[in-house]
C-alpha cells in the first residue's frame, strides 16, 4: 500500500483501476487492458493505492476475461486504460464497472483527469480481441 498524493474530494468513495506500466503513481498508463503490466487499484475514499502485477498478461488466450474478472473481484467501479477488447468489456459491463478508454499520461494525471470529469465512459470495446498480444 502506498500513500497517495492526489487530493480527493470527501465522500467520493470509490475504487478505480488504472492499467499501468509501473507500480507507482508516476508510472505511465499502460495502453492495454487485458495484457497490461500492472493494475493500480486506487481507493478514492481512503486515498490509498495498491499495485498488482498482471499475471494474466502471459495467457495465450483469455487475458482480457481474467483481467476483467480480477478487476471485478476487487470491487472496482471504474477502469481507466488505453484500450479494452470485447471480452474484457463484456465482463466489466456485466459487473457494472464503467470503462474509460483513451487514457494516457501518468497514473496520477489519469486519476486527476478522471476526478475532473475529463473522460467519457466507453460503452463499447474500442479494440478487437487479441489486441496487445506480443508479436511473434
Amino acid at each position: 500500500m502506498g500513500k497517495e498524493e492526489v487530493a480527493i474530494k470527501e465522500g467520493d468513495n470509490m475504487k478505480l483501476c488504472i492499467t499501468s506500466e509501473g507500480k507507482t503513481l508516476d508510472a505511465k498508463v499502460d495502453p492495454r487492458f487485458g495484457r497490461c503490466q500492472n493494475f493500480i487499484f486506487f481507493d478514492t475514499d481512503i486515498g490509498n493505492f495498491e499495485a498488482c502485477e498482471n499475471a494474466n498478461a502471459q495467457f495465450q488466450g483469455g487475458a482480457g476475461i481474467q483481467s476483467g474478472q480480477l478487476v471485478v473481484s476487487k470491487g472496482v467501479k471504474a477502469v481507466l486504460t488505453g484500450n479494452v477488447g470485447p471480452n474484457a468489456h463484456q465482463v466489466l459491463s456485466a459487473a457494472g464497472v464503467s470503462v474509460f478508454t483513451g487514457v494516457s499520461g501518468t497514473v496520477k494525471e489519469a486519476v486527476e483527469n478522471y476526478k475532473n470529469g475529463k473522460y467519457k465512459s466507453a460503452d463499447a470495446p474500442n479494440v478487437g480481441s487479441k489486441f496487445g498480444m506480443p508479436n511473434k
Partner: peptide
C-alpha cells in the same frame, strides 16, 4: 483456458 468469468451478486444485483 480462461474461458469463464464469474461476476458475483452485488448490491442486490444478481450475479452472472
Amino acid at each position: 483456458y480462461h474461458a469463464i468469468a464469474v461476476v458475483p451478486a452485488n448490491d442486490g444485483k444478481k450475479g452472472s
